[in-house]
Write a protein that binds this DNA or RNA. Structure first.
Lengths: 408, 408
DNA sequence: CGTTATTTGTTGTTTTACTCAACAAAAGGT
DNA sequence: ACCTTTTGTTGAGTAAAACAACAAATAACG
């Protein structure tokens, strides 16, 4: 006798059957996911959050401990009456490498599977690196970081964040304009050099995942993430907790959405798009800056009082507002996350953006929606890319092989 | 040693544990889903498609038979060597009612859970019906159809397709401009009158589901569906096989996406949107038609040779192409389905739309993508709405109660 | 037309992973 | 010191899927 819509059927098209092994995998994954998101947690919390029986949690935690993925310890603080619950923590020794090739540098990091960046190195390159060069540099940096890791550490793999489109089926970089890469099998190249499993995806998509797990999107299931970088505007959409990938993995190109008749071209030659109208370099030039990070840009922007700069900034905010309005109509998200340059732009005049966008989307869709600045800063892509490499482990803890630090 | 991205984690945020009951529910649902989509299927096919064991399928089918949801019969045709497999068919006696209130009429139908429309009645109304009136008419029509159903039929419930925004949390019609309904608890009203469980959702979303299951979207998991009606343009997006709902259920308002600086307003007062630029009534007027269905419109359009009409149609096609390009960039779908008026518009000059849209989206996202006309015609909303009411049954066959045709 | 190979249904047994109940352990409250 | 509360531990119970062995029903083949 319900009048509410039925529960959305997650397995609507999953006409595959399940068996006991699937249950076990799912439950191990549920426990490990909770632990990797929150850092550590008493057993009793696991029991409550998963809805499973005490004895089952005991069994699952024991198995994860045997796999070397978690550790148990006596609780330090007690939270009330009753026997204190054992504290379960994700093992610090399980890590993944994160790789981010960009126009002027290649960044590599080591990230623990609780999302902590253990180490990070960045090597600048003279020009846009060719793919082979980039793979070589990344591999050398990984080797270097690997040497510094204690013997008992184990590696899940390498996650790569690419400023461009990545084909999911085979992990090939379809097109990365700023790197000038076309149809580059970067994952395969790096895998052959390093001998480690390599996973690869678009940088903005990975950023949205990182924000979902560890940043401003924590706890939300419907997220639209917009990331403004020097190169352009990327996007990531999270629907029902999982990222929008599309048929080949190219979904979420929110910067290339046309919102105006303007003949202005964006980085991919499309006109009147968000990316063509909201341009970091234009504002930078207007401010008389040659090179600046987002922090410096924000400071310069706040200090500047000229009408010219204000006009440019406001026009960009207005364009952003239209795009945000569109995305609200399309996705009806719980939260819109603005990152990088867009976060700077938003903070310049939040009210302008908010009031403008209210005029370009349906009122109903705005109910309880919030616009937020992204929380993760410099480590965003490291966390996101490493998370990609750690995903197989978290999804199937018992059947994922880890590589020791030394030797193959 | 994989270089491909990891399998997307469906349960990424589902940190709930599973137990044996979940398995059983999932497997029963998998079998019933397969059957409802394909009509009928030998047991051996079920075994292969689900990946489950022969004996398990036997057990599941027996349970579904006991529940009166499927019937087994000797196979008529044999498909090769070996003992012939038993044919399993969805029970014809399990039905749902579909209700679609619109500007000038209320349509009610009976649909079997294999997607067959058994009966349909339509009652025209003088003016936009008030919600109470609409509920009353719908209830009377349901009663009438119910009388004609055989005694052994059983009813899953009532599914309602609303031309407007429906809040998911409580099934309230947030805003239906053409009906002039605001914050109307239509589901509750109809439930109280009929005594049957009532489920309600946006019409375009339901249309996209119907096309996914029984129409031009069959077999696809990434679908963008655009529906042009007399009232405006609605949309439905299917991601990874499940509909995009958003936080409150308002996602998929694709008609209200701004693509131009034009001051032209749409039905919700937004300017430069797809709906404001692609207007059925404008073309109808240009053709000198007062009232016509899509078929008549298509015929008139094909017959007309005036430059004026051609110019209007082409401008609308161009606007549609921009929107389609945007959606391709955003969703990277496998297929774009055009329904209703948009299907008519597309068929007027398919090449124009296709060539234009290729210039307004990224090339990579166009790989292997197709634009198609929707396949389900007049029965679209009946199938979609009934599917909504049948979803709980298909998702949890063992724990969903059905109502007999006679008596409460 | 009988024999054989192949596929499927059926039946009984085995296995696995979760639940449940009973009890012990460790805390706070009185 | 004793009770209450919460949690961990252990062993028994259980549901559901897999598996193995056999029977049944077909096509293919000589």
């Amino acid at each position: 006798m319900s009048t509410t819509p039925p529960i959305p059927a997650r397995h609507a098209l999953t006409t595959k059957g399940s068996n006991r092994e699937d249950i076990r995998r799912h439950n191990l994954s549920a426990v490990l996911t909770l632990l990797s998101r929150t850092g550590e947690m008493p057993r009793s919390a696991l029991t409550e959050l998963t809805g499973l029986n005490r004895s089952t949690i005991s069994d699952l935690v024991t198995e994860l401990e045997d796999l070397g993925l978690v550790t148990e310890s006596e609780a330090v603080t007690t939270q009330g009456v009753g026997r204190p619950s054992l504290m379960v923590s994700p093992a610090e020794e399980v890590v993944a490498f994160a790789v981010n090739p960009d126009i002027d540098a290649i960044t590599v990091g080591v990230v623990s599977f609780s999302g902590k960046v253990i180490a990070k190195v960045r090597q600048t390159t003279a020009v846009q690196p060719a793919a082979a060069t980039a793979a070589d540099i990344a591999n050398k940096l990984i080797d270097q970081l690997r040497k510094d890791l204690p013997n008992n550490y184990r590696i899940a793999g390498i996650g790569v964040a690419i400023p461009g489109q990545v084909r999911h089926a085979d992990g090939v970089v379809r097109l990365a304009p700023h790197l000038n890469w076309v149809e580059v099998p970067f994952a395969r190249m790096l895998q052959q050099l390093s001998g480690l499993p390599v996973y690869i995806d678009n940088d903005a998509s990975l950023g949205s995942l990182a924000e979902r797990d560890f940043g401003a999107g924590k706890g939300f299931r419907e997220i639209v993430y917009l990331f403004g970088s020097a190169g352009g505007i990327g996007g990531g959409v999270i629907h029902d907790g999982i990222p929008l990938r599309g048929s080949a993995g190219y979904a979420g190109e929110l910067g290339h959405v046309r919102i105006s008749d303007s003949p202005q071209e964006d980085g991919s030659g499309l006109t009147g798009t968000l990316e063509s109208l909201v341009r970091r370099d234009v504002l930078l030039a207007a401010l008389g800056l040659d090179n600046a990070d987002d922090e410096q840009l924000a400071a310069a922007l706040a200090a500047d009082k000229s009408a010219k700069v204000r006009k440019i900034a406001e026009a960009q905010i207005d364009a952003l507002a239209i795009a945000v309005g569109n995305f609200v109509n399309i996705f009806n998200p719980e939260v819109i996350l603005l990152a990088g340059y867009l976060s700077t732009l938003f903070s310049y005049d939040p009210d302008r953006l908010l009031s403008r966008f209210r005029w370009s989307s349906l009122t109903a869709s705005q109910d309880r929606m919030v616009v937020r600045q992204a929380a993760l800063g410099a480590n965003l892509l490291m966390v996101g890319a490493a998370g990609l490499a750690l995903a197989p482990l978290v999804n199937a803890p018992a059947s994922t092989q880890l590589t020791p630090v030394r030797g193959k």
